[in-house]
């Protein structure tokens, strides 16, 4: 294995999205037992170095593949031949049917920033957040459900079409998450210390 091996190959899997979580975990433990630095202490330094690189690769691959959304983001990157995470994979794009609604949300956020939040404003923002969270979940279900199944069944010729659909759905999701984050921040300014960098 080397750095040019992709995450699917690390786990001996075909480039498909239907992955059994239990089997993935079992394979992860097996690979960890083989490469984790804990079991390499008496190996020569060069061997240790190599195992360390592989162990890091196994961990990153597992982290990516066990999360159904991260798995799709990675697949898109792989299909487009982008090796590193440099440059964001998808540019956030607003879902067209929500343009008007999101415009309103942004106005509400501007107002909240200028003059603070009363109870009514707070309730409205919270209701908006809940609606957008539900919409975001819908997009995720589309990604991991119908579209993922499409990918696994698509012929090589049909794949670019599915990748394009993935990208559109990921862009919508990324956009919704940005707005949801802004709403969360407005509703709970104290939670700022706990920002988890969704956007990077």
């Amino acid at each position: 294995m080397s750095q040019t091996v992709n995450y699917f190959e690390v786990f001996g899997l075909p480039r498909t999205l239907g992955i059994d979580a239990g089997q993935l975990q079992a394979k992860f433990y097996e690979l960890s037992r083989r490469y984790h630095p804990d079991f390499q202490q008496s190996a020569p330094p060069a061997e240790q170095e190599r195992a360390l690189t592989l162990s890091a690769l196994v961990n990153t691959a597992y982290r990516t593949l066990r999360d159904p959304i991260a798995r799709i983001e990675y697949l898109v990157r792989l299909e487009e031949g982008r090796d590193t995470r440099e440059g964001s994979a998808v540019k956030p794009a607003a879902p067209p049917e929500l343009l008007e609604e999101i415009f309103e949300v942004q106005e509400m956020l501007e107002d909240a920033k200028a003059s603070g939040l009363d109870d009514e404003g707070r309730n409205r923002l919270a209701a908006e957040r809940d609606r957008l969270v539900a919409r975001c979940r819908q997009e995720e279900e589309l990604l991991t459900g119908a579209l993922a199944a499409d990918w696994d069944e698509a012929s090589p010729a049909g794949r670019p079409r599915v990748v394009a659909a993935f990208k559109a759905a990921l862009a919508t999701r990324a956009y919704l998450r940005t707005v949801i984050d802004d709403l969360e921040a407005a509703l709970d300014p104290a939670g700022e210390t706990d920002v988890t960098h969704h956007r990077h």
Binding site: Q3, L52, N59, T60, Y62, T84, R85, E86
Partner: peptide, 11 residues
């Protein structure tokens, strides 16, 4: 909370 060892590459 990323499992270690772990690595990231950047250009």
């Amino acid at each position: 909370n990323t499992t270690i060892p772990t690595s990231a590459r950047e250009m």
